[in-house]
Each structure stands twice: as structure tokens, then as C-alpha cells.
Computed example of a mutant assay.
Amino acid sequence: MNPVFKVIQPAGILDSAKGSEFRQEIGEIVENGTNIVLIDFQDVTFMDSSGLGALVLGLKTVRAAGGKLFICSINEQVRMLFELTSMDRVFQIFPNRDEFANAIGSLS
């Protein structure tokens, strides 16, 4: 079975309002057979604890379906949030999409 890859690129502020949409989008792509999900944070300016909660629930959804979730292009605020909550140990974070592509290519 070939892996099905999808990129989700949220934008702006990832809070409780956007978090539920974000979770729903992850659920839908997993239901459609995607098993490798890349969340590209390039356009996210701020993320609060509810956005982080939505991301964790998204990770659980992807893992429950046997898939993998990766993150790239986080800004300094998001990086600090990940480090303060130790989520940088839970998520595999890449500096950008190119680094992700290189790593995934070397994994297959």
C-alpha cells in the first residue's frame, strides 16, 4: 500500500474557534485514506493552549488510523509553547517542507 500524503496549512491564530475546524479537517482527510499528514505552520502567527489541544487530538486521530503526523515551519512563539509543554518531544518537527521531504524520502 502506498502512503497517502496530505498537507494542512492553517493560517492566522490557532485558538479554540479555529481549533475545532482544524480537528475536523484532520478527521476528514484520515477518513479519506490519508496516512501521512504534514501540518505546515508557515502562516500561523499565534497558537494558544486550545490550538495545541486540537493539534494533540489530531495526532491521536491520525495515530488511531495507523498514520503519522508531522509538523513544519513553526515560528518562535509556537516553538516556545511546544517546549514549555514538552510537546516538542511528542511531535516530529521539521524546519520547513524541504527538510520534511528529504527526511521522508530517506525513510522510504
Rank of each mutant, 00 (worst) to 15 (best):
M1P: 02
M1R: 07
N2K: 05
P3F: 00
K6T: 14
K6A: 14
V7L: 05
I8N: 00
Q9L: 09
Q9H: 14
Q9Y: 10
A11T: 04
G12E: 05
G12F: 07
I13G: 03
I13L: 12
I13S: 09
D15S: 01
D15W: 02
S16T: 12
A17E: 12
A17R: 11
K18Y: 05
G19S: 11
G19M: 06
S20E: 13
E21P: 00
E25I: 13
I26E: 10
G27S: 15
G27L: 09
G27N: 15
E28S: 14
V30I: 12
V30H: 05
E31R: 12
E31I: 08
G33S: 03
T34A: 14
N35H: 14
N35P: 12
I36Y: 03
I36C: 05
V37Q: 01
V37R: 02
V37C: 03
L38F: 08
L38T: 04
D40A: 09
Q42E: 11
Q42C: 05
Q42K: 11
D43N: 15
V44A: 12
V44C: 11
T45W: 01
F46L: 06
F46I: 04
F46M: 02
M47Y: 12
M47R: 06
D48I: 10
D48V: 09
S50H: 06
G51W: 00
L52E: 10
L52K: 09
G53R: 07
G53T: 12
A54L: 06
A54D: 07
L55R: 05
G58S: 07
G58Q: 10
G58D: 06
L59P: 00
L59H: 02
L59E: 01
K60P: 00
T61D: 00
V62K: 03
V62R: 03
R63P: 02
A64P: 02
A64E: 15
G66L: 06
G67D: 12
G67P: 09
K68H: 07
S73G: 06
I74E: 01
N75K: 01
E76A: 14
E76K: 13
Q77V: 11
Q77H: 14
V78I: 14
R79I: 02
R79N: 15
R79C: 11
L81Y: 04
L81N: 03
F82H: 08
E83C: 06
E83F: 06
T85G: 13
T85P: 11
D88E: 10
D88F: 05
D88S: 09
R89T: 15
R89I: 09
R89E: 15
V90D: 01
V90A: 00
V90G: 01
V90H: 03
F91H: 08
F91P: 04
Q92C: 10
Q92Y: 08
I93H: 05
F94N: 05
F94Q: 13
F94I: 02
N96D: 15
N96M: 03
E99Q: 11
E99I: 11
F100S: 03
A101P: 01
A101Q: 14
N102Y: 02
A103K: 08
I104C: 04
G105A: 07
G105M: 00
S106V: 00
S106N: 08
L107I: 08
